[in-house]
Amino acid sequence: MNVATAKTEAAVFFRRFLIALVRIAVGARSEWLGCTPKPTRRIYFANHGSHVDTVAVMAALPWQVRRRTHPVAARDYWGKTKVHRFIAETIVRAVLIDRKPEPGTNPLEPVERLLERGQSILIFPEGTRAEGDEVAEFRSGIFRLAQRFPDIELVPVYLDNLRRILPKGSMLPVPITCTARFGAPLRLQPGEEKAAFLGRARAAVLALDVTRPVPAAPVDNSQAVRP
């Protein structure tokens, strides 16, 4: 066995181990409310509560979908050491991007290349793990991807309870069950402004939080399904 295959074998083993661990530790249940798990090219976008959530979404996906879905992770964190890189790139099959890119470069380029090859991605548009119980405003990356690939389905994902499992700043997990809820896909509408689209995308994620009271303000929930 040569070095490359040994590394792949190790990655497969660690990946299975990690997914089994997450399934036991947090349940990683999936509820498909607005779409079905299809291995088509998609952009999954989710709220971000803890380090576990990338693996939680991956564990919640059926393997046919999982094997072609790549989480987008921050290079400044996951590229820090060789171990970080191995976990992110080889085990989780993540694609690393720069959160603070050099002027004139396109930080989303590696993501776009994957989408062009027909792969799916998973992004956390809040950019960083949120501090409180709120879902932060979305950054513009998802808007640019929606512009660049207008025919791709954007699937909102809400991760329940993750913030309670491993809050920011804590190393001690609490084994509460996590559910990943997949909502109805959205697309960029013709002529839709950036702010409107980002607001709509965020509302679609929030609408999947079944514990949240329905907002009084007229938010466009037409694309999301409430169970």
Binding site: G27, N161, R164, P167, S170, L172, P173, V174, I176, T177, T211
Partner: peptide, 16 residues
């Protein structure tokens, strides 16, 4: 029990 019962950040260590 704790999946359904709400908790706050301040309960984290008690739950752990």
């Amino acid at each position: 029990f704790w999946t359904l019962t709400p908790s706050r950040r301040g309960d984290h260590y008690a739950l752990f």
